[in-house]
């Protein structure tokens, strides 16, 4: 399978006046297209930092990240924003939907930024919201949706831009077990049927059980990398 993410000796160090914290230390890994990968580890192990580095939301202190052949450390802030828009989907722990937009508008938001045709955007929005089981809540604003429903809208939004991969930072953390299970099954289905690459940072054993690859971090370092 084609490698879409490659990190080489990736390091991220946070400095404050008292000390230096090595949040990510010499992480080198390859993630191939279609993987369903979980990055696990205790709190403070560097999972979210690694995800942020891969997603171009933070800059590495040293090392290299190559996504689909593009060294993203070479990109300017503006180019990186455009790169994220075209290549990366995000699912956040706190859903982070835009509160003034409806479910439908939240999903089409990214496509509007991409400058897609209105008809294409509308069709894909409908298709994605149907896929996540929210065709009847298209015109609801986030405040009128449950946590599970909001996170499903977030999944649809992440898929909307047709990204090369989706980064999901503890997507189940704020959900009840039923919603979490439903969301996980939905993402697994998308991975299997649509070959969409998912990379999770998680503590959730249910995600770990479904993941085809588990990368374990401790103190910013990879301590194990297992394929099932």
């Amino acid at each position: 399978m084609t490698t879409i993410i490659e990190t080489k000796n990736l390091c991220k160090t946070f400095k404050d006046s008292a000390q230096e914290v090595h949040a990510v230390e010499n992480v080198s890994l390859n993630i191939a297209e279609g993987e369903f990968t979980a990055i696990v580890g205790p709190s403070g192990s560097g999972k979210t930092t690694l995800l942020n580095l891969i997603g171009g939301l933070d800059n590495a202190t040293s090392g290299k990240i190559v996504i689909d052949g593009q060294d993203i450390s070479m990109l300017s802030e503006k180019q990186m924003t455009e790169f994220r828009l075209r290549n990366i989907g995000f699912i956040f722990q706190a859903y982070n939907l835009i509160p003034v937009l409806t479910a439908k508008e939240n999903v089409s938001f990214v496509m509007d930024l991409q400058g897609r045709k209105k008809s294409e955007t509308n069709a894909r929005t409908r298709e994605l919201l149907e896929a996540v089981g929210l065709s009847d809540r298209m015109d609801s604003r986030p405040a009128k949706l449950s946590g599970g429903q909001q996170q499903r809208v977030a999944v649809a939004r992440a898929l909307a831009s047709k990204p090369k991969f989706i980064l999901a930072d503890e997507p189940n953390a704020n959900l009840d077990s039923k919603s979490a299970q439903h969301l996980l099954e939905m993402m697994e289905k998308l991975n299997e049927q649509e070959k969409i690459t998912f990379i999770f940072s998680t503590h959730d054993p249910r995600i770990m059980a479904k993941a085809k690859r588990i990368i374990t971090l401790e103190d910013g370092k990879i301590v194990s990398d297992e394929y099932k």
């Binding site: 997603g55 939301l57 802030e77 503006k78 835009i98 930024l113």
Partner: peptide, 16 residues
């Protein structure tokens, strides 16, 4: 702040 950060993360240029 958080909402702005999310929008930028999703690919909205700061200028926009």
């Amino acid at each position: 702040h958080r909402e702005f950060s999310v929008m930028i993360s999703l690919g909205m240029q700061r200028r926009k």
